[in-house]
Design a protein around this nucleic acid. Structure first.
Lengths: 233, 233
DNA sequence: GGTGCTCCTTGATCTGGATCAATGAGATAC
DNA sequence: GTATCTCATTGATCCAGATCAAGGAGCACC
């Protein structure tokens, strides 16, 4: 759907304001690095300073590592997303490619400095950061107070919004992440996730095709299963 | 520790750059509203547009409401914090005072417009929003992958960082929130929270005084209980 | 088009934290 | 000081989801 001849050009057209001067574009070019990641590879980045990443093409997961070998997926990202990788604090973080990816990385502090003269870039950073925060808050509610079925339903609806292809009343999804990734994102085990998929399939709310294909047949019912307010009726 | 003769002045000195012109200060004054909240009262704000809140003095909780009567505390805030209240989406949100509070509220969109000419304000908004996101991500890990004991230990350490008073190797806390609030923040029940407090007390890691007083006696051991990486040694 | 692997599904059992049910202890009002 | 009410603690039981344990299905590579 979206192709870029060059990763940096893609960044420019998606993030920088239309009428950015060529000298500014050059400045950002010197700061950024183009990285190509094969599926399952993780981005290496300095762990003492935050990094800004623009995902030109592909899908990634941001993973937090607890002390032992437990992992929590904090967020999934798709083509066009801009994200900030935190410096490692009490826990460590990695960004891992779900499929083959093209991304641009920038040292956060330097990027911010370069953006200071361009409030549209700052505004956009702020806006995207707010969206991330909003998603993270929804996830907090999901992990803190929802049952396994509600979590999986919420997940499917959220993916439908981000990468779904509507076809009539149905929504088709091609999930780039494994059941393990979904489980690690929802604070469940793969077995439990699998059982909820089976449940939803048996209730006629979804159809599955192979490992990654999912069709949402009854979005309204899924909304109800997810415990969303808006479907009070 | 921190007192303001006037809420708006407090906002000016804590958020706006030092050398902001008087006409700009006046502009922000026309946008903001001063609100005084008694303990347990919630802030009323329009549910169709986001609101920016500066907490001049006091402590608040941001609560997400799931469809039925389950509640999830998304974040606690203390004097000096700047936060964005999301417009209501799939779930609804409320900001509630834990103690008597003074705050300044601004319509988010208008505030942003006013801040456009002042990149220092934008930068600060971005910075604070990044801190919120970082906290929210830590919470995600906590809710998704940690045991009850780890959650309570993490909570105490996080509170120690934000409102703790160090006294030698000990840290004293005066928690403004109830056990219910803590439970709702950690995705647990009050009974479970209480049991973890008892456990930590029996192990000699904390001491409690009344309902709200907590002294952390062994921060290093708490770090270990919380499953933090940095205390590998 | 098989062969081998990895990932997913399904079933049986176990358990951490929820739920249910009394006390007990702080705070507030009188 | 004491009555009262709310909030916190402690104990007994229960259950959703984890863990353990096989199969089965999709997919890549030869």
């Amino acid at each position: 759907m979206h192709t870029c001849t060059d990763a940096f050009d893609c960044f420019v057209s998606r993030v920088l304001p239309k009428r950015t001067g060529p000298e500014t574009v050059r400045l950002f070019r010197t700061l950024g690095s183009h990285v190509h990641l094969k599926a399952d590879r993780q981005l290496h980045y300095p762990d003492d300073e935050p990094t800004l990443v623009f995902l030109c093409d592909g899908a990634t997961k941001l993973v937090a590592h607890a002390s032992d070998h437990r992992e929590q997926v904090l967020a999934f990202h798709f083509t066009g997303d801009l994200l900030t990788l935190p410096a490692h604090g009490a826990h460590s973080y990695t960004l891992e490619a779900l499929v083959e990816c093209d991304l641009m990385t920038f040292p956060y502090a330097q990027f911010l400095q370069a953006a200071e003269k361009h409030q549209q870039v700052l505004t956009q950073l702020l806006e995207r950061s707010t969206v991330s925060l909003q998603r993270s808050r929804e996830k907090t509610l999901t992990l803190g107070r929802k049952s396994a079925l509600e979590r999986v339903s919420s997940f499917l609806l959220s993916m439908a919004e981000r990468i779904g292809r509507g076809e009539g009343s149905e929504v088709k999804l091609d999930l780039p992440m494994s059941r393990r990734d979904i489980a690690d994102s929802l604070g469940l085990t793969i077995e439990t996730v699998s059982r909820q998929f089976t449940l939803l399939r048996d209730q006629g709310l979804i159809r599955t095709q192979g490992r990654s294909g999912v069709t949402l047949l009854r979005v309204d019912e899924l909304d109800r299963r997810a415990g969303h307010l808006r479907v009070a009726a």
